[in-house]
Simulated assay, not measured.
Amino acid sequence: MGDHGTLLSVTPVPTQPALRTSGLCKDFRGFRAVDTVDLEVAEGSIHALVGPNGAGKTTLFNLLSGFLGVSAGRIALFGRDITGLQPEQIAHLGVARSFQITSLFENLTPIEHVELALQGMTSEGYSFWRSHRSMHKFRPRAEELVEEVGLTSMAHRPAGLLAYGQKRALEMALVSALDPRVLLLDEPTAGMGMEDIDRTIELVRRIATGRTVVFVDHNMHVVGSLADRVTVLQAGTVLAEGTYDEVRNDERVVTAYLGEADHA
């Protein structure tokens, strides 16, 4: 420190991005589905990936979560290289993802689904043969998660009776049960009516608290309502990136994707 009346400036230490890809590529028999993608997702942000069918969004999700192997490039999670790790290894590091199609046990209730998910995160694993009594210790947290996604009234009814939007809400509870640091949501509002879409937007906002969320959605209302930052993909490459307003007004994006629908 110099003179007593002088304060030394302190350079802030840059925080590590939650996810970063460098030159990421994925080839399928000569077809490049993801082409040299450099992506950086800030910790604690909600980041949207948009683009038409075939843009590479789901393939990129599968690379980030380990469901597909990388052809070239690297993936880092909070600065740790996770390139080539298996899905379960990446999940144990705090990444959870949802899928476009929800798979549930039709005869199990939402509470039972969430109890199984909570048990799966313990040393007991998915021990289906354990007694109902041993599962009951997960009940309080399961009830909290079911309430969080608005399914309390359906908590003890078979999942097969849930409406489509309710099934997607249950899936949100299941991924929340994993207590992830990074949440990957693939088309969370696909096939929903406007009422369910608005409900899901609020739900994503709630479960995003204290987490990083990356999501794919074709609905620009959803993207504009949720995303802090938007990456636009075209034919496997990054076409544009910025805030929703920035990409919405980018002529390349308007021409390629949004067109008249965005201005309606």
Rank of each mutant, 00 (worst) to 15 (best):
Asp3Glu: 15
His4Gln: 12
Pro14Thr: 04
Thr15Asp: 09
Leu19Val: 09
Thr21Gln: 04
Ser22Ala: 13
Ser22Cys: 10
Cys25Tyr: 11
Lys26Cys: 10
Lys26Ile: 08
Asp27Ser: 11
Arg29Met: 13
Arg29Gln: 14
Arg29Asp: 13
Val37Ala: 02
Asp38His: 09
Asp38Ser: 03
Asp38Val: 07
Asp38Met: 07
Asp38Asn: 15
Asp38Tyr: 04
Leu39Lys: 01
Val41Tyr: 00
Ala42Cys: 08
His47Gly: 07
Ala48Arg: 00
Gly51Trp: 07
Asn53Met: 08
Asn53Ile: 10
Ala55Pro: 06
Thr58Gln: 08
Phe61Glu: 01
Arg74His: 09
Gly79Phe: 07
Ile90Gly: 00
His92Glu: 15
Leu93Thr: 05
Gly94Leu: 04
Phe99Gly: 13
Ile101Trp: 08
Leu108Cys: 02
Pro110Gly: 01
Glu112His: 10
Glu115Asp: 12
Leu116Asp: 07
Ala117Gln: 04
Gly120Pro: 09
Met121Lys: 15
Ser123Thr: 14
Glu124Gly: 11
Gly125Leu: 06
Ser127Gln: 12
Phe128Met: 12
Arg130Cys: 09
Ser131His: 08
Phe138Ser: 03
Arg139Glu: 13
Leu145Pro: 01
Glu147Pro: 10
Glu148Gln: 14
Gly150Met: 00
Ala155Val: 00
Leu161Met: 15
Leu161Lys: 11
Leu161Cys: 14
Leu162Met: 03
Tyr164Met: 04
Gly165Phe: 00
Gln166Trp: 02
Gln166Gly: 01
Arg168Pro: 01
Leu170Ile: 02
Met172Ala: 11
Leu174Ser: 11
Ser176Trp: 10
Leu178Tyr: 06
Val182Met: 01
Leu185Asp: 00
Glu187Tyr: 10
Thr189Phe: 06
Thr189Asp: 06
Gly191Met: 06
Gly191Trp: 03
Met192Val: 04
Met192Lys: 01
Met194Asn: 11
Asp198His: 12
Thr200Pro: 12
Arg205Cys: 09
Arg206Ser: 12
Arg206Leu: 14
Ile207Tyr: 05
Thr212Gly: 01
Val213Tyr: 03
Val216Cys: 03
Met220Asn: 01
Val223Leu: 03
Ser225Asn: 08
Leu226Met: 03
Leu226Trp: 02
Asp228Arg: 00
Val230Gly: 00
Leu233Ala: 05
Gln234Trp: 13
Ala235Arg: 14
Leu239Phe: 07
Leu239Thr: 09
Glu241Gln: 15
Gly242Val: 06
Tyr244Phe: 15
Asp245Asn: 10
Glu246Ile: 02
Arg248Met: 15
Glu251Asn: 15
Val253Gln: 02
Val254Ala: 13
Thr255Cys: 10
Ala256Asp: 04
Tyr257Thr: 07
Ala261Thr: 11
Ala261Lys: 14
